[in-house]
């Protein structure tokens, strides 16, 4: 399988168009559009999308009193369907206390530790994925809306550098695939533009729900670059840049990807 895959990829990329800069806003396409009809159908129907199982779990978690404060998310935030609407579309967002942007997973964990006075949830734990998918789902269809102000700008810039500069043993950049060669085939799979519109999402490859950071770490690993631990500021900066790059595109959480 290994050899033919490599060969396929060379053939596929040989046909690629010339290198581009940023993708024009109107030409951006969600990963959804690169998927097979059957995979799209899985995302389109909540009762066929396995991510729904996590969202259902989160409806219970949202109501559960936790930590020494004995409070549930609902005690402070009420009905997620109204009060969490549009929130995920703004994340990562600048956090005053930390002096830097935080992503949705970190935001939920801050509430866990500082508000509920409970232990933080592990990255990629069932609970954290469930809660972020649930909060994310409340923004479904809403345009991604990342603030681009003086606070955020340096971090956005750091994320852009992460995306455009070559890194790792293969000396590749994210942009080479996602800005310059999107639409081409890599070992039979289409190279998407790499938009973060659907996270956390159910990835067939993982056979489970996973966060954007998990996906980014997969890509960095594939590039033989430093993958950074979960929660690393480098990863949050990259998430921030990707969300800004996808500004205006609709949130699909929880999506499905191959």
């Amino acid at each position: 399988m290994t050899r033919p895959a490599a060969v396929l990829f060379v053939i596929a990329v040989l046909g690629a168009a010339a290198a581009a800069a940023d993708i024009p806003l109107a030409e951006r396409k969600s990963g959804y559009e690169f998927m097979a009809r059957e995979t799209r159908a899985m995302q389109d129907d909540d009762s066929a999308n396995p991510a729904t199982l996590w969202v259902l779990d989160a409806e219970t978690l949202w109501q559960r009193k936790e930590g020494s404060a004995g409070k549930s998310c609902a005690d402070c935030h009420g009905d997620a369907r109204t009060n969490m609407r549009g929130v995920a579309a703004r994340y990562p967002a600048f956090n005053e206390a930390r002096g830097r942007p935080i992503d949705l997973e970190q935001r939920v964990n801050i509430c866990r530790t500082e508000q509920q006075r409970a232990t933080p949830l592990a990255f990629e734990s069932k609970e954290l994925l469930a809660l972020t998918a649930y909060v994310g789902q409340q923004s479904r269809g809403m345009p991604i809306d990342i603030a681009n102000d003086a606070h955020i700008r340096p971090f956005l810039e750091a994320g852009r550098v992460m995306f455009t500069e070559r890194q790792g043993q293969l000396n590749l950049s994210c942009a080479q695939c996602h800005d310059d060669n999107w639409g081409q085939k890599l070992a039979g799979a289409a190279i998407p533009q790499g938009h973060p519109t659907g996270y956390p999402l159910y990835r067939l490859e993982w056979q489970t729900l996973g966060s954007l950071q998990r996906r980014l770490r997969n890509c960095l690993f594939g590039m033989r670059a430093v993958s950074y631990p979960y929660g690393a500021s480098e990863l949050v900066d990259l998430e921030l840049y990707l969300m800004w790059r996808a500004r205006g595109m609709p949130v699909e959480t929880p999506a499905v990807r191959p």
Partner: peptide, 26 residues
């Protein structure tokens, strides 16, 4: 499209990514 430097870059990109696909497709 016919920029010579770009062509070279592309060739290098191909060689590298072939290695990536080879390494990844397991």
């Amino acid at each position: 499209r016919d920029d010579g430097k770009l062509q070279r870059t592309r060739r290098r990109f191909l060689a590298e990514t072939a290695a990536l696909a080879g390494a990844a497709g397991i």
